[in-house]
Design a protein around this nucleic acid. Structure first.
Lengths: 203, 203, 203, 203
DNA sequence: AATGAATGAGATTTCATTCAT
DNA sequence: GATGAATGAAATCTCATTCAT
């Protein structure tokens, strides 16, 4: 019985959470109303306040989930072997996340680009800086191993790679909603992005 | 006297427009209220409706302005000489715009990443695709001139470059508002981005 | 306890409805504001939207109520015995309604005379045509029974009777608000209207 | 030149007036905005205030015009010959007005049924009572001439006739906007109304 | 006689949130 | 845990009217 209850508890909480992530991701924080969320989740309004306190805290929960999800994936990547392998895995890890959890990208992007618009919370900076840090650190190690050409700024590389991947993923999402000229779309952009960056970096 | 009148007219319209661009850019469409705008502009609410019709049309006006501004800058770049020079100018044109008109970036990014959230208008797709197209076309010409290594997908390059520059500019904006770890910031990212891409592409 | 709750629910909904019917009837749809209604009903504004959706749907609810009320009364009249009796009951049914529910008349009249001004709903035509139809059908039956003089157009009779009764009722309402010359008022107009019409029709 | 100016003056004033009558008639006082009127008239907003003072006075002007128009037509009818002829002319006079100036009916009806909704003005009562008075007076004269059956209340007759004609005219207007069942419409209702009333009254 | 621009007040509607049960 | 009902505050937008020229 208590298991059943716990199960039910998770049902409602989980349904709210799922709906919230999707809606925040697609419409942004302000365009998403509590009613949108509860309608999608099939629950009543006060349940949001019961489980999450208020809209702001619900949003922060969503962002943290995305963050943790990405962190977990990135943590699994061994940065120590070769930069070639690292970057392949990095790209496929982010790509996988965007595939399995497409809202993640949008949520992060919303968040990154409009910090003023969103509720603040302590770990906020990390969400932005962690993925960049990973690339930077892997690059540093590779430098020490002598794999890397001279003259590459590590942080810029992290930022540029992150930005390139994000833009490619965003565009494939956007093109579902906005008419993008046919001849602008790229097939398998991740593969090409990997090639561009590796060529530039590796000796 | 008539100049004064015209001046006054432009004062009100212009003040609304200026305030709107800044606010939409920093807070997004939904988080920005008409009251925010008129308070910032120092005018009365109905003036927004008098000059722009409604909130949506005001937003579209802002987006169009950004679009035209970017297009003008990109149009001036001669794509025909060398890809090296082209990309330098492309980067400095976008960078300049982000410097002189920092809201442009945010507005575009808001818009690109949340097409569902924002009012649509016909030229919407172009805002996204035009900058990418410019890079692609310049790259094609350079290929014909034999400047370019084999195996580069033109569209992906446009996307990746656009994304890298945008993320770098965003981060420098974001870091004004969110505590980003000091050691993640890159100095003069545009210069490094240029290097990364050129190295990868040029023979 | 549950009765109390149900009671309260009906209190608010009912109070809004009652106030709305009165105000729509006396001032018309556009001159009546939601604030008028909630002030009269002693409830808060959002309750209107909670229970009725919006102003238009509230109005439609009111009109439907009037329609149903009149239909119920007309349905009880047996059209089959004699036209004399039918018309007496028809007149007293409408008169009774205007007495017990004086707003009904005004609401119908508002509605009938300004179809463009008011929100449409599917049964709109019926409100206008049903009472006329009843008279027409009763007249047809009476014709078959040989009660009726030749040369009477059935539909016109329905319209004329409806119009005459409505104008009489309206005037007695209007004279409460506008100074009508004393010598124009008729005492017991329904009785006289009945006489006028029966004399004209019956053999 | 002054004639030309006067002509122009009348142009603007007249255009406003014409537009106002049509709009007030079709949409009612409150649903009609000054903008509606000036848009339809092709003039600017302040012109309304220049020529008519304000919305209320503009409306009163419209009502008075309708009133005068009807009065003129009714005045021409000689009430003294036979009631048969009088009623024929009365019906054709009102019918003609509704044909030539269809807004007149709606304006009067709006006004009659919702005195609370509209601006008051001194002659207001007359607009309602005058047509009824005419019928009553003609009936009295006819009584003295011995044309009329006993037992007819003069005021009620005026009211009933007025109401019947008005409802018939309204319905033919309404049926342009609301789907009225085909079999409810009457052809040439005025002729039949005349018959109904005369049969009832004349010896 | 005419206009473009401006405004205060108020209209409808929505939102995040809470209360009583 | 869960709900229907309720609310204060604020959002977008419109309206009749006036000012300066």
């Amino acid at each position: 019985m208590s298991a059943q209850r716990a199960g039910k508890r998770d049902d409602v909480r989980g349904a709210i959470f799922k709906a919230a992530v999707e809606l925040f991701a697609h419409k942004g924080y302000f365009a998403t109303t509590i009613r949108d969320i509860v309608d999608k989740a099939g629950v009543t309004q006060p349940m949001v306040y019961y489980y999450f306190g208020n809209k702001e805290q619900l949003f922060v929960s969503c962002i943290k989930e995305v963050h943790n999800n990405l962190e977990e994936r990135l943590e699994e990547i061994d940065a120590g072997k070769s930069f070639d392998k690292f970057i392949g895995r990095y790209i496929s890890a982010t790509g996988k996340m965007y595939n399995e959890f497409p809202e993640a990208l949008l949520l992060m992007v919303h968040f990154i680009h409009s910090p003023e618009e969103y509720p603040r919370f302590p770990e906020m900076g990390k969400i932005i800086s962690n993925p960049i840090k990973r690339v930077r650190d892997a690059l540093r190690k590779a430098k020490r191993r002598g794999e890397i050409k001279a003259g590459i700024d590590e942080n810029t590389l992290g930022i540029a790679l992150f930005g390139a991947l994000e833009m490619a993923a965003s565009l494939s999402h956007v093109s579902k909603h906005v008419k993008i000229p046919h001849d602008i779309k790229s097939k398998d952009p991740d593969k090409h992005i990997k090639k561009i960056f590796l060529r530039s970096i590796l000796k």
